[in-house]
Structures are given as C-alpha cells and as structure tokens.
Amino acid sequence: MLSRAAENLFWLGRYMERAESTARIISMGQRMAMLPGTPGRSEWTSVMQTTGAEMPEDEMASELDVVKRLILDPEGPSSIQACLLRARDSGRAVRTGLTQEMWESLNEDWRYLESLDELTARSQLSKVLEWVRKKSAYFRGAVDTAMLRNEGYYFLRLGSSIERADMTLRLLNVKYFLLLPETEVVGGGRDHHQWMSVLHAVSGLRSYHYHYGSDYAPWNIADFLLLNKIFPRSLAFCYSQIDLCLSHMETDHGGSHKCQKTARQELERLNRIDISGIFNDGLHEFINEEIARTSRISQEVSDAYHF
C-alpha cells in the first residue's frame, strides 16, 4: 500500500473517532452543567481546555463558545465540523479503497452542520450531538460489516483506536478539572452525578453496572475506563487493538517497528498495574503521561510507514 493511502485511511479513522468523541465530551459537559448548584461556565471551560480549543479572552467559556468552536468551526483541530470535512477529504483520496456503504456514510447529509447558525445549533444541541454519534456509528458499522481485513482496514482501525484512547483520557481529564476548585465535595452527591455523567458519555453505564454492580466509587469508574480489558472504550482495550493492528501490519510487511514495541510495552504495563497505584501516584499525572505516550505512538506510526 502506498504511504499516502495508508496516511489517509489512518486519519480517516482518527477524524471520525474524534468527531464522535468531541460530541461525547460536549454531552458530558452539558449533563454536568445542568446539575443543581453547578457553576455552568466552569463545566464549559473544562470542556474547551480538555479538547485543546482556543479559549475566549476571559478564559471562561460558555455554552455558546463551545457551539462556535467545538461544533461549527470549520478549522479547529477538534471541531466536529472540521473533523467531518477532513474525514470526507481523506475518504475521497482513497475512494477505491472504501466500500460503497463507507463512502455513503461520509457523504450522507454532510452539509448538515454548515446549514446551522450558532443560535439554532445551541437550541438544538442535544439533537446535533445525537446526529454526530449516529453518523459515526453508521460509518463504523459500514467498516465492520463490509471492509476487507487487509492492511487498509488495519490502518483505519489503528487510527480510530489511537484517537479513542486519547479521548477516553481527555474525558477523565474533564472530570479532574471540575474537581479542582472544590476538592471538599469529592465523594459527595454532586461528585457522584458527575462521575455518572462520565459513564453516560462513553455509553458505559450498563456495562459498568454489569461489571461493578451499583458501587459507583470514583476509583471503580477510573478502573473501568483505564484498565478494564473488555470495555471497548477503556484505555487497556484500545491498546490491545493498537497492538493487534500493528501485529497484523508486521505480518504483512515482514518487519517490526518502534511503534509496535512501544504499544506492546504499554499494554503489558496496563495489564500489570492496578487502580490504587494510579490514585496513589496521582490520577491527573497518570492521565497526562498516557496522553503524551499515545501521541508518541501516533508519531512513531507515521515515522514507521512514512507519512
């Protein structure tokens, strides 16, 4: 496969996953902002900080700022509209490598966000976020049910797995930022609902309940999102998929690369550590280290396959 084709498939996976993950982060911020006694602007500020969006001049974001910069901005690195436009461009560049269903999923209603002004998007925020999640699910279903399991598939899955790992970490960082100003409420009623919002954001509430029962302790939720081996959005599961994709590409190309060694070492580390050790050393510090490591693997993949 040409490096250019591999790059487009890799970033197609990343952009589609990023669009959905950004929608999930906004949805979580929306839930948290509606909690009684919650200073709404701090929730939206944490959402903007976590996604790396450009902040307003006063460093305090509103819901309208989030709509403008994380949904409708055609240029922002984490903006949903920008991600979907870039995903479509990447898909068009490798059109012959996509199935008809995949291409249709990228093209169907793709100008929907362009038709919205800021006030309309804000008034219909839940509807807009649900549209993004459904569009992403449609694309993912098209990939899983029709795409050949060849190197193109593994480059696309690799990109989406790296992006999903990164965004799960950033979702947890939203929660961390929200607790900073009021650590005395950790474990309280509002804290409990905020952690529940994290589970809602990853569509993990029922899966969590099946695994942990009704014990919604923060360390259990962090364990579920970081170290659970069978939940599809956990960090450990994402790294198992990264390792799997890189192993298949090693077989296809007859050689290993630094990125595969890094991914395997990280997977072994996640299988070895426990959540108590993470909390003792600092959850925020662990998350930041993992975000940096995930970014490093992405760069190593680009170096290994020349894009």
Score class of each variant (00 low, 15 high):
272 R>W: 10
92 R>S: 14
82 A>C: 07
108 E>K: 10
179 L>E: 10
284 H>R: 09
168 T>R: 01
168 T>M: 05
261 K>M: 10
109 D>E: 12
88 R>V: 06
186 V>K: 10
301 V>A: 04
126 S>W: 06
169 L>P: 04
197 S>G: 09
303 D>C: 05
265 Q>K: 12
30 Q>T: 14
200 H>R: 06
182 E>L: 12
106 L>G: 06
276 S>R: 15
226 L>I: 13
112 Y>L: 01
145 T>H: 14
300 E>Y: 01
7 E>W: 05
55 M>P: 02
276 S>H: 15
172 L>F: 04
244 L>M: 14
80 I>V: 13
273 I>H: 07
98 L>W: 10
190 R>E: 12
75 E>P: 03
12 L>E: 08
176 Y>I: 10
113 L>A: 08
185 V>K: 11
17 E>V: 00
270 L>W: 02
166 D>F: 00
265 Q>M: 11
204 G>K: 02
270 L>C: 03
138 Y>E: 15
141 G>V: 08
168 T>N: 00
163 E>R: 06
290 E>V: 07
137 A>S: 12
18 R>C: 02
238 C>I: 03
176 Y>T: 13
106 L>C: 07
73 D>P: 08
200 H>T: 05
85 L>I: 09
169 L>N: 04
214 S>C: 02
175 K>T: 08
272 R>K: 11
75 E>F: 10
5 A>D: 13
183 T>I: 15
34 M>Y: 11
31 R>I: 03
113 L>V: 05
70 L>Y: 04
37 G>E: 06
68 K>W: 04
151 E>M: 11
211 H>T: 14
282 G>S: 01
83 C>F: 05
116 L>H: 00
117 D>H: 06
42 S>P: 01
199 L>F: 01
221 I>C: 03
60 M>Q: 11
130 E>M: 11
272 R>L: 11
107 N>D: 13
97 G>P: 00
165 A>P: 08
39 P>I: 06
170 R>P: 01
99 T>E: 10
119 L>E: 10
279 F>S: 04
209 H>M: 13
91 G>V: 06
106 L>Y: 07
280 N>Q: 12
271 N>H: 14
187 G>V: 01
288 N>Y: 14
155 F>E: 00
155 F>Y: 09
35 L>G: 00
12 L>F: 05
187 G>Q: 01
178 L>R: 13
13 G>L: 07
266 E>A: 12
26 I>H: 02
185 V>C: 01
293 R>I: 10
296 R>E: 15
301 V>L: 05
120 T>N: 08
263 A>S: 09
113 L>E: 08
